[in-house]
Amino acid sequence: MGKSDPFPMPRTGLSPSEIQDKAVEIAIDQMRAKGFEKVRLVDVAKEMGISHAALYSHFQDKTALLDAVSERWLVNLDQKQDLLVLEKRDPLQKVLTWFQNLHRMKLEKVKLDPELYKAFDMAAEQSKPFIQTHLSNMRNQMSKLVTEAMEQKKLKKKDVKMVTEILISAGTAFTHPKLVAQHSEENREPLLLQTIEAVLKGLV
């Protein structure tokens, strides 16, 4: 028989998904308190009352945990945009609101959660899988809005994919992670809306 651990870690009573959620919440608190660079899995595990080895079974390293933090934020962002797409109103107005929301949510993150935004920006630079999922969701949302606008004859019948890419490309200067951060002290929302309105007029 092997020796028992003289300092057994208490059981959490949490499911694997609950452990992951709790770890993300603690990581967020630590990022806000001391910066994302100083977050350590061993500290997160200690606060949870589990061994760091147990936490490693859920997150292979610190980067994986930070990615989970960013992914949670993007999932929430995408869900809000999904609800917008389903609203029963003018699809062209929804296109404007979609860009406005995306810009505002990223700008808010830069200002209120700068450390979390830095972690997200790093993941975006490396084009992590969850970032690709977010970009795919963005295109799907815009594609639905474009299709709806064409069906209501608010836009000319054209290739939906092409129009979607035109619109998203036009908004990139206002929604790209680095550019949002670089211009965070400027009020660029009016220019964003004017830009998208001009593009839409060219597609009517």
Rank of each mutant, 00 (worst) to 15 (best):
27 A>R: 01
37 E>A: 12
25 E>M: 02
53 A>K: 11
47 E>G: 02
32 R>L: 11
26 I>L: 15
33 A>R: 10
44 V>D: 04
41 L>I: 08
41 L>R: 01
34 K>I: 10
30 Q>C: 00
22 K>P: 00
36 F>H: 12
55 L>M: 05
32 R>Q: 09
36 F>Q: 09
24 V>D: 05
35 G>S: 02
35 G>Q: 05
48 M>C: 13
35 G>T: 02
33 A>F: 05
28 I>K: 08
29 D>P: 00
28 I>E: 11
54 A>P: 02
33 A>W: 04
23 A>R: 01
55 L>V: 08
42 V>R: 14
54 A>C: 12
53 A>Y: 13
51 S>Y: 12
30 Q>N: 01
49 G>Q: 13
44 V>T: 03
49 G>K: 13
37 E>N: 06
21 D>K: 12
31 M>V: 03
46 K>E: 15
23 A>D: 07
36 F>W: 12
40 R>K: 10
42 V>N: 10
23 A>S: 10
41 L>P: 01
35 G>F: 07
22 K>A: 14
40 R>Q: 13
51 S>N: 12
24 V>T: 08
40 R>A: 09
33 A>T: 04
43 D>A: 14
25 E>Q: 11
45 A>Y: 12
25 E>L: 04
54 A>R: 13
36 F>S: 05
28 I>A: 02
39 V>E: 06
47 E>A: 14
26 I>W: 12
54 A>Q: 13
40 R>I: 03
31 M>L: 07
29 D>I: 04
23 A>P: 00
37 E>Q: 09
23 A>E: 07
41 L>W: 06
38 K>P: 00
